[in-house]
Every structure is written in structure tokens, then in C-alpha cells.
Design a protein around this nucleic acid. Structure first.
Lengths: 218, 218
DNA sequence: TATTATTTTTAGGAAAGACTAAAAATAATA
DNA sequence: TATTATTTTTAGTCTTTCCTAAAAATAATA
């Protein structure tokens, strides 16, 4: 369908559009993709001919609906493979990017349908980033403190507020790390303490803990 | 390390060397890889410079030890991915070749080590072909009738001798198909009947059945 | 606003890997 | 062995994607 290079450009432009608002500049693309601006101009003109983006000389580019769909699909594949690598092959979350960069280009609709099912149709990748659905729709997410979640809400751990050794050791003991899915089973109004589920374990955490953990939520 | 095209050539030449004996001709490679002989000459000269094969004009090529190692490694990856697709994603054994053709080029030592472990270090792919080990060593295998196996031997189903509807339905009921691993738990000298293990099931089969099933063995 | 700096594009070309057409070896046959 | 057929190679191109160097457009500043 699309070449590896085309897919990489679309994906990168998609990300840049989400960060900065509006058009994406040639230089920004060149930097992201580690190539020269002149190469970007070439490719961007080609993608414009294919109606995957709109391009006006010196004015930057913007993905079309079709372009966004293709890009989101590549990102979907990338993030699903990352889940596979971490959940099934026990890679650490920070080891999987490079491999997923390759796997995201494997062409097979059926493969992704089955992989998604095999993984239990996850909503987030191991970095806490949301996985676009089959139609390329990326649910918008918010980064919150775990303490802000209500009963029955879910989040994926994406970071800590204060990283004292004690706190990190606590998280380690409780098997909580970047990408870990956390479900709030109960919340005590009195002191803000919670019962949460992590993997198959359920346990109590204090408000102090819940205020130190960042989670990504739908 | 090597380009996708290089890996495809090495793999193809490896297979051709195993089929016909001796040197592999330009035309044979061209046909296998669906390209023109002139393109083969180009690539073969390049691979010869890289010492992956020996090449004499008009005389065909032969892989060096290094070339064989690279080729066997690609084949190892291909076959491990096929096992993954069939065992984990529930693809049918005849649907996986094209996808594995792509997956075999993913570059990551660590990935293959972990994939192999995840799959339980299988010896055969879903077609009954042996999987080369980490060092590129391909165990030689034999195709036999199941009836010829002794107690505690293992084989992978690779075909049937006579394919009557009744027999195929029997195999279907017993969940035996191409690629199914069969272990002989016991064998009765008197009538040649066997107790075999298929998946988690253990059951009795008559000599007549065992004589109609081809298996690949180490 | 004139000038300088930055960004972007054009022009021309390189490497990889494919192709066609024609030439050169080798093989097969009369 | 001479001739024909087949296989293989060479020579010259094409496409994709990248590059460098120089030109053109836009933005920033005096």
C-alpha cells in the first residue's frame, strides 16, 4: 500500500500536528525524521500528489483525512506491538521503541485484528499513550494524579511526581511501573485512601501515594 | 546488518542448495525470487564481494559459511514467527507464509531470543519444517510414517498417505492437522497400536491410523 | 524600509535494486 | 565439429529516497 518511508513521514507529521497546532514546517519534519529539509520537500510533494496531505510552498503541510487515517493506523500498529513486547515477551517498556518502529510496517490487516484480540484490545501502550482504534480514531486522554480518579475509573501509570528512593522502592514492591494499568475499586472520602487493582492483586493505598502517581486516563 | 533484498537472496540460495545439490544457477535464483537473471547477477556479485558466497562467472554460486549462517538465521526467524502466528494468533498454517516473509526481516537478536522462549523453543514450524538453532544449525530430519516411531519419540504431522473423507474427519475430531506435534507415549508390539499425546490429550490409535500419517522427526 | 538571517525550495547527483536489450559463454544437437 | 539454443553477463536506464550546493522566499532586525 504505502512504502516504509511514506508511512514514517505520515506518522511523524501526525505527531507534530498533535504537539504544535496548525501547519507543520519542513524543518520540523526534517528534525523529527533525522533527514535534510530538501529530502522532506521531495517527499512532501509526493504525498501531496497522493492526496495524503495539503502542501503550499513555504507554508508547511497539513494531513488530509485520508493521511490522518493512514498515520493513525501506523501508530496503532506501533503501540499494539509495544504492548506485545512488554506483556508477552517481558521486555522493559524503554526497550521496545526501536523494535516497534520496524514492526509497525508489517502489512496485514488480519494480523493486527488478531494481535489486538490476543492482547485483550488494550487502550494504552506501555508508555501510557492511547492506542487508536481500527478506524484510526484516537481517544483523547488526560494526565491526572491517581488521587483524582473516582471509583471504577482506570488509568495507566505514566510517571511520578516526587521520586524519592523510598517511593520508587514501594512502587517496585507493588509491581507498579510505567505502563501498569491501575483500576480504582474503591475510594474513601474521609482520607482519600483507595483500594486499587494492579494485575491480579488488589490492595490499599494511602492518599499520599495516590497523590504522587501520574496516570493517563480516557 | 543486511538489507532486506540481501537477506532474501541468501535465504533463497540456501533453500536451492538444499534441494538440488552443488552450485546454484542464476536462472534458478531468478525464478525463485521472481526477478530477472540480470538482477540476480548484480546482487550475486555484490554478495560475493561481501564474502557471503563464492561466485564464478557462468558457473553459479555457493554460500560461504558466513552466508549460510545469515541465511539460516533468516529462516529461523521466519519459522519462529510462523509458530507464533499459528499457536498464539490462531492463524491457519497455510495463511502465515506471507506475513512471516515480512517478519523475518525484523532486526533484533533479543527479540528472537525472547520469542523463542515465549513459544517454548519449538523444533518445527507449522508446516513440519525444522527450525535452525541460534547458531544457524539445521538439524536434519526425516519424514516417516507415525507407525515407524518408537516410544518417547516425537514427530510433527506433515501429511497423510491416503486421504479418505472418513480418515480426515477422524483427524479433525482428534485435532490433528499439519504442524501438530505428536508424541508416542506407548507402543504395543502385538498389533502396532499406540498411545499418543496431542496437545493436552492422550489417546489410543490403531496401527491402521499410524500407518496413514506422515510425520517429520529429528 | 533596507539589510541580514532563516527557512524552504530547486537543481543536480548518488546508491540500491530493479528492468530491457544486446553481447558473450556455455550447452545441446545435427 | 559446426550450428543452434540456452544461459548468463554487460551496458545502459529507471525509480525511490536520500544527499549537497545554490537560489528563492519569508522572517527578523537595525
Amino acid at each position: 500500500m504505502f512504502t516504509l518511508a511514506e508511512e514514517d513521514y505520515l506518522k511523524t507529521i501526525f505527531h507534530l500536528e498533535h504537539d504544535g497546532k496548525g501547519e507543520v514546517s519542513t524543518n520540523a519534519i526534517a528534525e523529527s525524521i533525522a533527514t535534510k529539509p530538501s529530502s522532506v520537500t521531495d517527499m512532501v510533494q509526493k504525498l501531496a500528489e497522493k492526496k495524503l496531505l495539503t502542501y503550499k510552498r513555504y507554508k508547511g503541510v497539513q494531513l488530509t483525512t485520508e493521511g490522518k487515517k493512514v498515520a493513525a493506523n501506523v501508530i496503532r500498529k506501533h503501540r499494539l506491538w509495544e504492548v506485545f513486547l512488554v506483556e508477552k515477551l517481558n521486555f522493559h517498556w524503554d526497550q521496545v521503541h526501536e523494535i516497534a518502529e520496524q514492526l509497525e510496517h508489517i502489512q496485514s490487516e488480519e494480523l493486527i485484528v488478531r494481535l489486538d484480540k490476543f492482547l485483550g484490545s488494550p487502550d494504552f501502550d506501555p508508555h501510557g499513550d492511547p492506542i487508536p482504534d481500527q478506524h484510526g480514531v484516537l481517544k483523547r486522554t488526560e494526565k491526572k494524579l491517581l488521587a483524582e480518579l473516582e471509583k471504577n475509573q482506570q488509568g495507566v501509570c505514566v510517571g511520578v511526581k516526587e521520586s524519592s528512593t523510598e517511593f520508587l522502592q514501594y512502587l517496585d514492591k507493588k509491581k507498579i511501573s510505567i505502563g501498569t494499568k491501575i483500576t480504582v475499586l474503591g475510594k474513601e472520602f474521609f482520607d482519600g485512601s483507595m483500594i486499587i487493582q494492579v494485575g491480579n492483586e488488589q490492595f490499599f493505598i494511602s492518599h499520599k501515594i495516590a497523590e504522587n502517581l501520574f496516570v493517563q486516563t480516557l
